[in-house]
Amino acid sequence: MADAALDALYQEVILDHNRRPRNFHPMEHASCSADGRNPNCGDQLTVWLRVDDDVVSDVSFQGQGCAISKASASMMTDAIKGKSRGDVVQLYEKVHKLVTGEDPALAKDKELGSLRALSGVSKFPMRVKCASLSWHAMKAALDGASVVTTEGPEDARSAS
């Protein structure tokens, strides 16, 4: 059982994004950026966004973290590039429900594409924050904030 859960957590697609993170570089002339920090483990990453006409035209990230946080950030950059701000926020909410296990049906949601690999995280409550760190940073950047930590007042316990 433990091994099966571990296999589900560290799926090949996650390990691949961890080894070869996509869009892993700082961005010049970004429209906005934000730092995500997890004070519990010291993980820290920055997300840069370029927004043109309400569409995320480019996104990148850099930082240090575990395989889950790195892979989640890498997959996020692939997933949101070219999407409208509204679609990105919708996806952000879906991913939150996916990694917390709040909506188990999402694990089979085709629209999520490779992000479905993050469903394994829901079996590891201690790792939910790793998976959501980059998403929170991305959302904070869109909302005009510059720093976000996983220990915010809002549902800090459960997930974010």
Binding site: A2, D3, A5, L6, G65, C66, A67, I68, F124, R127
Partner: peptide, 15 residues
């Protein structure tokens, strides 16, 4: 090349 958190999760699965 393995982050300590991944090490801890992986070790936990082995008890």
């Amino acid at each position: 090349d393995v982050h300590p958190h991944d090490v801890a999760t992986s070790l936990d699965a082995a008890g």
